[in-house]
């Protein structure tokens, strides 16, 4: 126990621990996702560790590239995703964390726009639309947190007595939609889906192969862990309840993924700017002081 306390108390160790743990959590989550989907479809499915195998395999493959710049942006994408997580663990300003996350996504967009591949191009165009769709909702979420804590700092959330979910249930619902977009789940998986034969093949990640695809997958694992962590933070007073809540949220997203077809990107923007945004606004109104 003393070791755990030591890790929790020292910011540096905490960051290192999270940087190691987060991809594990993220890959486990996507392993859970694949298993869960397989069970819903009435089959056995791969093992829980399948995403880990996939990533490790990718790192052992030949480094095929289209050009140099692509690699630089892929690395920036990963690094800024890691930074986002580090800032979150350090309890930093939430709005700035959001901007770091946006920049990370932007790096992926630029990387996939820079190759002259039509599929990847369309994928990245849709990825920007996705960012356009969820960004206002996330900003409002953070503002709602401010209204309760009088602070933008992340660690102030942990000092509260009551869980956030009591006061921000609607925000949690709109966060689920944001998460569905971030995890590329139907009906929002317009930019790059996990299914093979969609109209733009694989969208944003199309031109990355081998270890570079591995980098992007690791970044995605970080992202999953981060958003899972955000869901847990909605019930921070009890870590078990938090994880239960986050898992419920995650399973809801997975069920939506399995019962929905992919819809158009414009539908996505219209939807996100109407229902989740208005839900968040409605939630903001009753938090107003």
């Amino acid at each position: 126990m003393t070791y755990i306390n030591m890790i929790i108390e020292s910011p540096l160790l905490r960051c290192i621990a999270v940087l190691i743990l987060a991809p594990t959590i993220g890959t486990l989550l996507s392993g859970f996702d694949r298993k869960f989907t397989a069970r819903l479809q009435g089959r056995v499915g791969p093992s829980f560790w399948q995403p880990v195998y996939d990533i490790l395999k990718l790192f052992g493959k030949q480094q095929i590239l289209v050009h140099r710049t692509q690699l630089a942006y892929a690395i920036l994408h990963l690094f800024f995703m890691m930074l986002t997580l580090v800032l979150l663990v350090l309890g930093q300003d939430l709005l700035m964390i959001l901007f770091c996350q946006a920049f990370s996504a932007l790096c992926l967009v630029i990387a996939s726009m820079s190759v002259r591949s039509p599929y990847s191009w369309i994928g990245s165009q849709r990825k920007i639309l996705q960012m356009l769709a969820y960004e206002p909702t996330l900003i409002l979420l953070i503002l709602a947190v401010y209204l309760q804590n009088n602070s933008f700092l992340g660690f102030k959330v942990l000092e509260r007595d009551t869980p956030l979910i009591y006061s921000m249930p609607l925000m949690f619902i709109s966060l689920l939609f944001v998460i569905a977009i971030e995890f590329e789940k139907s009906p929002f998986d317009v930019a790059s889906s996990h299914h093979a034969h969609q109209e733009i093949v694989k969208g944003t990640t199309l031109e990355f192969s081998g270890p570079f695809l591995g980098l992007i997958e690791v970044a995605h694992a970080y992202e999953m862990a981060m958003f899972f962590g955000l869901m847990v933070a909605f019930w921070h007073t009890s870590i078990i309840m938090g994880i239960v809540l986050a898992l419920i949220g995650f399973i809801l997203v997975l069920i939506m993924d399995n019962i929905c077809a992919r819809l158009t990107s414009w539908w996505m923007v219209r939807f996100m700017w109407t229902i989740p945004l208005t839900l968040s606004l409605a939630n903001l109104i009753w938090l107003w002081r």
């Binding site: 289209v66 050009h67 710049t69 942006y73 946006a102 630029i110 820079s114 356009l132």
Partner: peptide, 18 residues
């Protein structure tokens, strides 16, 4: 959000290359 959108489009165009 709009600001990010139009800059991202332009930055991508600037980086297209073989």
């Amino acid at each position: 959000a709009f600001t990010v959108y139009f800059w991202a489009k332009w930055m991508g165009h600037m980086q297209i290359q073989g």
